[in-house]
């Protein structure tokens, strides 16, 4: 588990983090969201013991990372833009890291295979492309199956296979008991991976909850209904008192509800004789994200 409580940090009298508290639990993926300059990276760097907070306390697996560095044997960390010693080869870097962390050298082959770097592991890091650098950084972070995985905007670049694999790997290791804390601008990553989100805005936590809760709160309950016969639908749906608005696109209806009465809506449609092919909650996290920023900006 990772716990950061009441973290405050300022630079030249500008407050970057103001009494921020977060908890990332094991078996869960926790995401820090927020626009640029919200304080996400500063918070991650405080948790990693790179920046001293003025106030507050950080604990990783019950230990203070500023006082007990041995805890980092159990932590994997991926930087926003991995900066690795350029004169090492990928394999040498992993050997060095395994040595420091006290990880079995057999692990090196496993993580190299995991990120598909078998062909390039012996090349100097200085000759790596951004994507290769990112892969070797992921491999390094996953060495020894860490109990904590912290990722600061793990940008997968343009490699969709790596992105998919990476999401799958992270999901799997979280399920196996690892605590995952990440920051991301990629709403798709957050939507598909995060169990818990904290929305940071100008150094303060503006929202915390699940992605579903975030969408519900800042976008409303939005359902997508697929119906085979749309005739008469407009009339029926406009009479439902808790439907705030709706639009029809092809054979789909996108309805925004004033409260979460999805079951009631589904019942009414079926009772009105419509053949509902699918009925699901829209998870337009990106749109919700913009709404949070808009609301936070206006209330600030």
């Amino acid at each position: 588990m990772i716990s950061a409580q009441g973290i405050t940090k300022s630079y030249n009298s500008k407050t970057v983090l103001s009494s921020v508290s977060i908890v990332a639990e094991s078996r869960k993926i926790t995401a820090l969201l927020g626009p640029n300059g919200a304080g996400k990276t500063t918070l991650i760097r405080v948790i990693m013991g790179l920046i001293f907070p003025e106030e507050g306390k950080v604990e990783i697996l019950g230990k203070d990372p500023f006082k007990d560095k041995s805890v980092f044997k159990r932590v994997g960390y991926i930087q926003e833009l991995p900066n690795l010693p350029p004169f090492f080869s990928g394999r040498q870097l992993l050997e060095f890291s395994a040595d420091i962390k006290g990880v079995d050298k057999k692990e090196i082959k496993r993580v190299i295979d995991l990120v598909g770097m078998e062909e390039h592991a012996n090349k100097k890091i200085a000759k790596y492309s951004k994507g290769m650098m990112q892969r070797i950084a992921i491999a390094e972070a996953l060495l020894g199956s860490p109990e904590i995985l912290i990722m600061d905007e793990p940008n997968m670049g343009t490699d969709p296979i790596l992105t998919l694999n990476f999401r799958k790997i992270v999901k799997e290791i979280a399920e196996s008991g690892t605590t995952v804390l990440m920051t991301s601008h990629e709403m798709e990553d957050v939507k598909r991976m995060a169990d818990q989100v904290y929305f940071l805005f100008r150094g303060k936590i503006y929202f915390s909850g699940t992605t579903e809760e975030l969408v519900k709160r800042f976008l409303g309950v939005r359902v997508i209904i697929e119906i085979s016969n749309l005739e008469g639908l407009e009339k029926v749906i406009s009479e439902v008192e808790f439907v705030k608005s709706f639009e029809i696109e092809g054979n789909k209806v996108i309805a925004t509800l004033t409260e979460d009465k999805r079951e009631e809506l589904l019942k009414r449609l079926i009772l009105s004789g419509f053949k509902v092919k699918s009925f699901y909650l829209s998870n337009e996290l990106e749109e919700a994200y913009f709404n949070v920023v808009k609301e936070a900006s206006s209330s600030d």
Binding site: M48, G49, F72, Y77, P85
Partner: peptide
């Protein structure tokens, strides 16, 4: 300058 200090200080090295 190279940002590599992060790599070391996020390891079990004081």
């Amino acid at each position: 300058e190279q940002g590599t200090v992060d790599f070391f200080l996020t390891k079990p090295i004081t």
